[in-house]
Amino acid sequence: MEFRNVSKSYGAKKVFSSFSLTIREGRTSVITGASGIGKTTLMRLLLSLEKPDSGELEVRGRVSALFQEDRLIGNMSVKNNLLLVTDDEPMALSMLEKAGLEGEWKSRVDTLSGGMKRRVALIRALLTSFDTMILDEPFTGLDDESKERMVSLLKEVIAGRTLIVITHDSDEYALLAPCDIIRL
C-alpha cells in the first residue's frame, strides 16, 4: 500500500501536503500521531471514502475497517448487527464467545456497555472479507482482560494478512508486536 505525494484538504484546512508512505503487506503496522494530524483521513483515503486532491494512492485487494465510532445499529440485536456482514452464523457466535460476549447474542446493542459495544464492533469488522484490515482506536473503553482477549482474537483472524492499527496509546504497541510503528 502506497501513498505517493498525496495532498488532501478540507476547505482551508490542509491535512496532507505531498504526503508519501509505504505500508508493508502481510504485516502489522501501527500508525500513531497527535490528534488532528490526519490519521482518520488516512484511513478514509485507504477505504476510498475520500479521494485525494492530488497524488497517487495504491491499494491492493479488499480493505475493511473498524471505525473510530462503533457504527452499530443501536435498536437492533447483536445478532442482526453481526449478520449484516456475514451469513456465517456459527463463526459469528464463535467470535462472540471468544470475546466473552456469548450471552449477548440476542441483546439489543443499545443495552450494552461502551466496552461491550466496542468488542461487538470489532467482531463485526473481523467477520467481513478482507485482505487488509484497518482498525481506528480499536481498544477504546476496554479493560485489560478484554483488550487481551480481543488482541488474541485479532491475531487469530488476521493470520498473515495486512493489519493497520491507528492508535494514540503507546501501551498498545507491545500488545500488537511484532509491528512496524509509523509516526505521522
Partner: peptide, 12 residues
C-alpha cells in the same frame, strides 16, 4: 450516512 459508509466498506 455513517451507516451507509459502514455498509459500503463492509460490502453489505
Amino acid at each position: 450516512i455513517s451507516y451507509l459508509e459502514m455498509a459500503k466498506v463492509y460490502g453489505v
